[in-house]
Amino acid sequence: MAQIFTYITHKGGVADDTALELAAAAKKIDAGAAVTAIVTGTGSDLDAVCNDVAASYSEVWKIDNPALAYPNAEAVRKALINILPAGAILLLPHDTFGMDLGPGLSIKTNSAFVADVADIEGTDGTTLKLVRQEFSGQVSTHVTCDASAGAILNIRPGVCKADESKSAGGKVVDKSGNAGDLKAGRKFLEMVQAEVGDVDITKSDVLVSVGRGIEEQDNIEIAKELAEAMGADLSCSRPIVDAKWMEKSRQVGTSGQTVKPKVYMAMGISGSFQHLGGIKGSPYMIAVNKNPKAPIFQVADVGIVANILEFMPELTEKIKEL
């Protein structure tokens, strides 16, 4: 089997949760593999991350360069092309950085690329057997990937249980000198923080959350009345914000807010992983959806097959009568 590497994303000297998830993912490809983590960045933050993940990897390759102070995918790509051995398998998190880096890197290293891997079933010679999802999780697929010339796999965050054993006892190897010229056609300028809204849904105990099933802007009022009757706050999925029907600060998901309510009511939300990624702390989840096969029913505690536009007003009436 080819040599397996992972790429560690980090911020403020702390490795992302995916650092240990990718260690576990690598073991699913080859249980006996000596896995190497690659960490790029600069200065003391970088050292802190390298030392931290060393316990979980056989080896940590550190690339220290001021050009990598902010993880610009183009500069990281150049460094990786120079240090990855031919035929390597590299695991990346399927997050906004991995989506930026993975596809182009696979072309430059002439290796196969698989995005958003939801599970790794094993290998058959140099063929990787993987599971993906299509149509926002409505169907799954078994996928084969010919890794004979190497592979880049973007692993969905949260699907591999982190390897917390910290028993690898790896050493940090400084590869900074091998990174080469990191000049990029894209330059990071600044970070603009997301706007804060009138309600902080991250503090809400009960959320009534609406998705595309609400169908029209005017219908938001129906959900608002239910939320008011329940004493809950109103949140939503991304398409509702894209349509400018609700503020961005009310969006639940990886590119929105991370909420930790006690009760979460998903009304006309299909259950994409980007949406579910913003719901933490295992709330009691109630899903109402007109499609009995909607993926949200696989993760909810209670499911109701109904048209939310008819169901919500009736529920509101009943609650008001209490």
Partner: peptide, 20 residues
Amino acid sequence: AKVKVQDYFVPQLGAGAEML
């Protein structure tokens, strides 16, 4: 193609919701 879809399926994840 190095990456090929072999088949489509609908997984049964966990217990699933209690349907009312």
